[in-house]
Design a protein around this nucleic acid. Sequence first.
DNA 1: CACTTTACTTACCAAATGGTAGGCTTGCAA
DNA 2: TTGCAAGCCTACCATTTGGTAAGTAAAGTG
Lengths: 199, 199
Amino acid sequence: MTSTREKLLTEAERLFAERGFYGVSIAAVSTELGLTKQALLHHFGSKEKLYADVLKRISDRLSTLVASTDSDIADPQQALTDYLIRIAKNAREEPHQMSLLMRELLDNQKRADIVQSWFLGSFLKELIQMLKAIDHWSDAPDHVALATIMQFLGAINYYAVSGPTLKGIFGNDVYSALDDQFDDQLEQLISAAISSKGS
Amino acid sequence: MTSTREKLLTEAERLFAERGFYGVSIAAVSTELGLTKQALLHHFGSKEKLYADVLKRISDRLSTLVASTDSDIADPQQALTDYLIRIAKNAREEPHQMSLLMRELLDNQKRADIVQSWFLGSFLKELIQMLKAIDHWSDAPDHVALATIMQFLGAINYYAVSGPTLKGIFGNDVYSALDDQFDDQLEQLISAAISSKGS
DNA sequence: CACTTTACTTACCAAATGGTAGGCTTGCAA
DNA sequence: TTGCAAGCCTACCATTTGGTAAGTAAAGTG
């Protein structure tokens, strides 16, 4: 039995992910749950605060995903790979989250939102650390490590976001075959990139 | 001396890329050029038609980018790599285009827009062909080739879109160092992925 | 029991939105 | 010279937007 507030957040997350901040009215979010927009305003105060809360919730959930990695894996390359695969899985299971973060990335070009930048910042820095923990990467300059990390995240998130479109273009069969082996191919990409580069 | 129509298209492209379809009013586009929104409506009829025209113009420009590849390169791996690098360069030179297409990808999840799907479809199929022209890839099933292509495009476009945000997080120095060598690293990624996989 | 808080509601509002209708000016062809 | 189309404007409009104000029913809480 989730609270109304939580239900509103979930609904808002879905709609914001699907149509973007400006594409969603607070009335649309609330009436979807059989409420009036004032119920929503009562809980969140304003549309922007609602949006901020949605973003914060996603950030929190991704953080727990990060936390659950933990250091019982001895091999740093394996640790990084596992982590990225977990992110990829999450991206496919919760496409809303990634879509919304992608939109944030786009909107940020002007707005430079603090919430997301802060979250993304620590997230990226952690990944860079994990990469540099690998033997032949320890001396790599930050920007080289960052470029590699961005390539991985790009491969993961772009694919997550493109899913429905790809299904439309190539049909269900090709798409589900693609989906089944994407993790494997991602793993291959990661290992290929990690071993081929570095200082 | 570009026509008013063309100027409106350029302005609209910039604004749509920055703020999305719903985030831009036709008044905003036109007043930016010192016109009223009726001037815009006179040229395009409706907001949706304006948007469609913007998309079409981008599609056309990217097509000429495709066409300029040409087959004078003997080595198919080199041809594919060159092509992808060219796309990456274009993505960095014209970030608006990629941002807008990324937004289209996001919005398409529900809307399934024909223009973009059609364009993206033939674009992807061409890339798959180029990949399969490489010796040890000729027998790879479509979905494997597609996954690889998507990884490349993801790395390229995600980075292109993230640019300003990354600059904000890591500062100008790291970012410009990153930017300077991104093409090189992309090339390494491509060659690593191509040689490590395949049937 | 009185009181306050929570979770909503209806009523309202100013501003912005996309779009229609009709007019004015300029240039150009018959 | 007339006609007419292109390119733009003012005026207007219905609808939607985010948000305020004020109220109400229920559920704690002293």
